[in-house]
């Protein structure tokens, strides 16, 4: 079993729902984002279009961050997820430099400031300390919501299909641009998308063999303009689950 993700760039509407969902799920400090959206303008014959590229840790099968980690804090799980054991991390930041995708962040003191400086911590921040304490002086990154997968699998849930065992960003994506599943299963939706839509990896030339794949990723080309339904949201059947998830988390604290 090897978890992977397919991102359909043409469907992405730049709603930043995935960024918000990840922030809520992992109680991320204000200055850190595990999921990032790169957006830039492309101009062609006085016609300007904005292209978006959603990036997160690629969970590389040949991950340089694992090779460089001096304490084996960064390790690959049996399911292919590249995870960090914060209790082992010494904060040398070698992995931050070595990651060719720049998807790692060192959590320094100045990054763990209050959401509202000079004011008391919000309820969300207080809950972070209890539910998802981030260790200052260590490195962080996306872990494909490994904790949700670990919680869901024993219950017989299928990551990618059952929402409770699926990464928060995938659940939230209104445009259904994100698909999650088992790369080892040829019948999984991700495997089919990779074959049928000729999915590509980001900078395959690095030899890192990422587990995140992209479809319709001709960056800068007109083919990357989102289809009508993605732009208008007409295909959206279920609204963002960010609010729902936030309520769920807050209700647990009572």
């Amino acid at each position: 079993m090897k978890w992977g993700m397919v991102i359909d760039l043409a469907k992405c509407m730049r709603c930043h729902g995935c960024v918000a969902a990840c922030r809520i799920e992992h109680f991320l400090p204000f200055s850190i984002a595990w999921v990032k959206l790169i957006a830039y303008e492309v101009e062609d014959k006085n016609v300007v279009d904005v292209t978006t590229y959603a990036v997160r840790c690629n969970q590389c099968k040949e991950a340089p961050c694992i090779d460089v980690c001096p304490t084996e804090a960064t390790h690959r799980r049996d399911d292919g997820i590249v995870d960090i054991n914060s209790d082992l991390c010494i904060g040398c930041r070698y992995c931050v430099i070595a990651c060719p995708y720049q998807n790692r962040t060192f959590l320094s003191k100045d990054k763990l400031v209050n959401y509202f400086p000079n004011h008391a911590k919000t309820r969300f921040e207080k809950m972070r300390e209890k539910k998802y304490p981030h260790q200052i002086g260590t490195t962080e990154k996306c872990n494909f919501c490994a904790e949700r997968i670990d919680e869901g699998l024993p219950k017989g849930l299928k990551p990618g299909q059952d929402r409770a065992a699926t990464p928060a960003c995938v659940n939230t994506c209104q445009a259904r641009a994100l698909t999650f599943g088992d790369l080892d299963d040829p019948n999984s939706e991700v495997s089919k998308l990779i074959v049928e839509r000729k999915a590509t990896q980001l900078h395959a030339d690095y030899g890192t063999d990422p587990s995140v794949y992209y479809v319709d990723g001709k960056i800068g080309g007109k083919s990357n303009i989102a289809p009508e339904d993605a732009r208008t949201g007409s295909h959206i059947k279920e609204f963002s689950s960010v609010e729902k998830r936030a309520k769920e988390i807050f209700s647990q604290s009572k």
Binding site: L37, A39, E41, V48
Partner: peptide
Amino acid sequence: QHTRRQWMVQHEWMV
């Protein structure tokens, strides 16, 4: 319609 301005760009540094 096309826009001539980037918006909500959090990570333009990576391009």
